[in-house]
Write a protein that binds this DNA or RNA. Structure first.
Length: 717
DNA sequence: GGTAGCACCAAAAGC
DNA sequence: TGGTGCTACC
C-alpha cells in the first residue's frame, strides 16, 4: 500500500473532520456524534502529525478505552504509515499507566514486577481485610465495600482523606478497610486497576522530575471516548498535557453511559473550562444511519438537559420507518423477533448484520430458547470470560507468584490447587506466623513447623514450596509459554484434570492449552518480553476485545456492549418502564443516562430499527405488568406503532427456511461428540435425511433435533 | 478436608 | 427463575 500523503487523506474528510485533523496545536475538543467517523479523524490526525508536522511517532500518546479500539487504531495507522506506526503509544489508560508505573514504581516503594489484581482478587482481598478487622460480612458485603473503595480511588481520595470525611458508621468501616486493603496491596507488591491510575497520578504529583520526563516524552496527547473518563483519568490528562496544551479529546456527551463505574460526564461538558483556549469541532454528519433513524434518535436525546445541542444528519436517504411493536409477553416478543430476523434474512440480510439489544443479560434466555428451536444461528456477547475462568486464573496466579513471590493473594489461591493437602487451617496459621515474624507468606512456607502446622501439612507445604522455588529458578531462562507448560505439569494441574475424566475437565485442559497458545503468541510479537509484561497484557484483555462479526451469526448483547458497533438491522427489546429505564435508575435519578443508553442503541442501526415492549413479563419468577417505556413516547409521531394480537402470532414461529446462510458443512455421524454455540457439549444420537441430526446435550440430558447446516455446531475430537 | 443442599438475591462492565 | 455462597454433614 502506498504511503499516505496529506493530499490523499485530507480529501477523504468532510469539512469538520478536516478541521479536527488540521488543528494540531493547542487543546481541541472534538464532539463526535454517533457514526460521524471519529476513528477516522483520530487516525488521520495522528498520521497528519507525523507526515506533515514533523512530529516523531514516539512523541504521541493516543489513549483509547478498550484494547480492541487500540488494536483497530494501530492497524489502521500501520496501513497508512507502515512500520513508523509501531513506535506510537496507542494504549488504554490502564496499559499506558502500567508501562509508566513499571518504570517509576520504586519511587512509591513498589517493585517493577508488581502484580495487577483483577476484580476477583480485589474482592477476595477486601473480604480478607474485613475478616481481619472482625467486621460482620452480612452487614458489610465485600463487594459493596470494594465498590466504595474503587470509587474513592477513581476520585483520587486517599485512605487518609477518606477517613477524614467519614459521614456514617458504614463509611467508617469503608475507611478502615480501605486503609488496610491498601497496606496489604503494597505488602504484596500488587496494584489493583484503580491503583494503576491513582498511583501514576501520585508519581506525577510527588516527583516533578518524573512528570517532566513524561511530559516531554509525549508532546501530543489524544483521548478517545472522553465522555467516559473518570476524575483520575482527567487529572492524568491535565498533568501530562496541561502545560503544552496539545490535548485532543474526542467524545460525545450523549453517549456517556458509564457513570456507574465512575465516569464523570462533567469532564467533557467542561473541557473548554479545564483547558483554556480550546477549539471545539462538532461532527454532525453521520455516515451510518438513515435520516428516519436519526430523527428518532435526535428527538429522544433532545429530552436530556445535561447536554450541548447537536443534531445528526446523514446523506443516506429516508429509509424505512422506525417501528414500535407491542406484544403480549416476553415469549411473544421472542417469537416476533425470531420471525422478523428470518424475514430479514430471507430479504437478503446476512445474519451477522442483525443484532438484538437488551438492557439486562437475563433477557437473552427466552430469546435464545426460541432462536435455538427455530435454528436461527446466533452468538451471545457477555457471560463468563476466558480470563476469568477458574483454571485460567489459577494458571496465571502461579505465574504471578513466580514473578512476584510477595503476591499473597495469588499464593493463597494456588497453595491448595490442585488439592495437595494444604487446608485453610494450615494456611491461616502460616499467614499469622508470617505476619508476626515480619516475613512474607512465601518465606514462611519454607519453615512450616515454625508456624505450628501439623506434620502431614508440613510435608505438603515443604514440597509445594520446593516446587515453586525450582520453577522460580527456571523462570528467567524460559520463554513464557515454556514456563507455563512446565507450571501446568509440575503443579499437578494437568494430572488432576486428566484424572477427572469428565467433559468439563477436558474443556478446562483445552482452555489451558489455549492460554499456552496466547503465551506463544506473546513470545513472537512482544518487543520487551517479560513474565510481568505477559501478565499485564492478559489482565487487561476484555470481552469487548473478542467481539467479532462472526459470519452468519445474529448477535445478542446488552445495550452497553453495543457501543461502538453498527448493524444493518437492530432490535431493541424490553422497552418498558422498570426494565428500560431500569427501576433502579428511576429511583436514583439516573434516567438521563438511561436515555443516553437508548440513544446509543438506536444509533447502532443503519437501516432498520425495531423496538418492542410487552404488556406482561415474568422476571425473577414474578409476573410484572409494565407500562411502555417513556422513551417510546419521546420518539417522533412518524414512527410506526403496531400492536400484535394473540391471533396474529400463530404465524410467527415457523422455522427459518433455507434463506439462512449455510455454514460450511459439518460431517457428523452417530456417536460423534459435538459442541453447540449455546447448548454446550453433546453427543450425536441420530441422523435423519435432510441434514437433521439429533443431539443429546450433556448439560441437561435433553435431546434436540437440529439442522446441521445452520446450527452453531462443531465437532469435538 | 471435601461436598451437598439450601438460602438468598437480582443492572450495566471497561481496565 | 437461576446462579452463587455458606453451613451442615460425611
Amino acid at each position: 500500500m502506498a504511503v499516505a500523503t496529506p493530499e490523499s487523506y485530507l480529501a477523504d474528510l468532510n469539512e469538520a473532520q478536516r478541521e479536527a485533523v488540521l488543528a494540531t496545536e493547542g487543546p481541541l475538543l472534538v464532539v463526535a456524534g454517533a457514526g460521524s467517523g471519529k476513528t477516522r479523524v483520530l487516525t488521520y490526525r495522528v498520521a497528519h502529525l507525523i507526515r506533515a508536522c514533523g512530529v516523531k511517532p514516539n512523541e504521541i500518546l493516543a489513549i483509547t478505552f478498550t484494547n480492541k479500539a487500540a488494536g483497530e487504531m494501530r492497524e489502521r495507522l500501520e496501513r497508512m504509515l507502515g512500520q513508523t506506526a509501531r513506535a506510537i503509544w496507542i494504549l488504554t489508560f490502564h496499559a499506558a499507566c502500567g508501562r509508566m508505573l513499571r518504570r517509576e514504581a520504586e519511587r512509591l516503594g513498589y517493585r517493577s514486577t508488581f502484580t495487577i489484581y483483577d476484580d476477583q482478587d480485589q474482592v477476595r482481598l477486601v473480604k480478607a481485610c474485613l475478616e481481619e478487622l472482625g467486621k460482620d460480612p452480612k452487614r458489610f458485603s465485600p463487594r459493596g465495600i470494594h465498590a466504595q473503595i474503587s470509587r474513592a480511588k477513581n476520585e483520587l481520595v486517599s485512605p487518609k482523606e477518606y477517613a477524614a470525611r467519614v459521614a456514617s458508621f458504614w463509611d467508617q468501616t469503608v475507611a478502615e478497610t480501605y486503609e488496610l486493603y491498601q497496606r496489604r496491596l503494597h505488602a504484596s507488591n500488587a496494584v489493583d486497576f484503580d491503583d494503576m491510575l491513582m498511583l501514576t497520578v501520585q508519581v506525577f504529583e510527588r516527583f516533578p522530575e518524573a512528570l517532566e520526563r513524561w511530559r516531554k516524552a509525549f508532546r501530543y496527547v489524544l483521548v478517545d471516548e472522553y465522555q467516559d473518563t473518570n476524575h483520575a483519568q482527567y487529572r492524568l490528562l491535565q498533568l501530562l498535557g496541561g502545560e503544552h496544551g496539545n490535548v485532543c479529546a474526542v467524545g460525545d456527551q450523549d453517549q456517556s453511559i458509564y457513570s456507574f463505574r465512575s465516569a464523570d460526564i462533567r469532564n467533557i461538558l467542561e473541557f473548554e473550562k479545564d483547558f483554556p483556549g480550546t477549539q471545539v469541532v462538532t461532527l454532525e454528519q453521520n455516515y451510518r444511519s438513515t435520516n428516519t433513524i436519526l430523527r428518532a434518535a435526535n428527538s429522544l436525546i433532545e429530552q436530556n438537559t445535561e447536554r450541548k445541542p447537536k443534531r445528526l444528519f446523514s446523506e443516506l436517504g429516508e429509509g424505512d420507518p422506525v417501528r414500535v411493536i407491542e406484544v403480549e409477553d416476553e415469549h411473544a416478543e421472542a417469537r416476533f423477533v425470531a420471525a422478523e430476523i428470518a424475514s430479514f434474512i430471507g430479504g437478503g440480510f446476512s445474519a451477522s448484520e442483525i443484532a438484538v439489544l437488551y438492557r439486562m443479560n437475563a433477557q437473552s434466555r427466552v430469546l435464545e430458547d426460541v432462536l435455538v428451536r427455530q435454528d436461527v444461528p446466533y452468538q451471545v456477547i457477555g457471560g463468563p470470560r476466558f480470563y476469568e475462568r477458574a483454571e485460567i486464573r489459577d494458571a496465571t496466579a502461579y505465574l504471578s507468584v513466580l514473578v512476584n513471590p510477595q503476591d499473597a493473594t495469588s499464593l493463597l489461591r494456588i497453595a491448595n490447587r490442585p488439592r495437595r493437602g494444604i487446608g485453610d487451617t494450615s494456611l491461616q496459621r502460616l499467614v499469622t506466623h508470617a505476619e508476626n515474624s515480619g516475613r512474607t507468606l512465601f518465606q514462611a512456607m519454607a519453615d512450616p513447623e515454625a508456624a505450628g502446622v501439623t506434620a502431614a501439612s508440613c510435608r505438603a507445604i515443604r514440597s509445594f514450596h520446593a516446587t515453586m522455588e525450582s520453577l522460580m529458578a527456571l523462570s528467567h531462562d524460559l520463554h513464557v509459554d515454556e514456563l507455563l507448560e512446565l507450571v501446568l505439569e509440575k503443579s499437578g494441574t494437568l494430572d488432576a484434570l486428566e484424572a477427572e475424566r469428565t467433559i468439563e475437565a477436558r474443556g478446562r485442559i483445552e482452555n489451558l492449552q489455549e492460554l499456552v497458545g496466547v503465551a506463544r503468541e506473546y513470545r513472537q510479537q512482544a518487543e520487551e518480553q517479560s513474565l510481568a509484561g505477559f501478565l499485564q497484557d492478559i489482565s487487561l484483555v476484555s470481552d469487548q476485545d473478542t467481539i467479532r462479526d462472526e459470519r452468519g451469526l445474529v448477535t445478542l448483547m446488552t445495550l452497553h456492549n453495543a457501543k461502538g458497533l453498527e448493524f444493518r438491522a437492530v432490535f431493541m427489546i424490553g422497552m418498558e418502564e422498570g426494565i428500560f429505564p431500569h427501576s433502579r435508575s428511576i429511583e436514583e435519578q439516573g434516567v438521563e443516562e438511561e436515555r443516553r443508553l437508548c440513544y446509543v442503541g438506536m444509533t447502532r442501526a443503519m437501516e432498520r430499527l425495531t423496538m418492542t415492549h410487552t404488556l406482561a413479563r415474568s422476571l425473577f419468577g414474578r409476573r410484572e405488568y409494565n407500562l411502555a417505556s417513556r422513551f417510546l413516547d419521546e420518539l417522533p409521531g412518524e414512527v410506526e406503532r403496531d400492536r400484535l394480537r394473540p391471533a396474529s402470532w400463530s404465524g410467527y414461529g415457523s422455522p427459518v427456511s433455507a434463506a439462512v446462510e449455510p455454514r460450511p458443512g459439518v460431517a457428523l455421524s452417530t456417536g460423534d461428540s459435538v459442541r453447540h454455540g449455546s447448548l454446550g457439549e453433546g453427543v450425536v444420537t441420530g441422523i435423519e435425511p435432510g441434514g437433521v441430526v439429533t443431539i443429546r446435550f450433556a448439560a441437561d440430558g435433553t435431546e434436540r433435533r437440529l439442522m446441521v447446516e445452520y446450527a452453531p455446531l462443531e465437532k469435538v475430537e
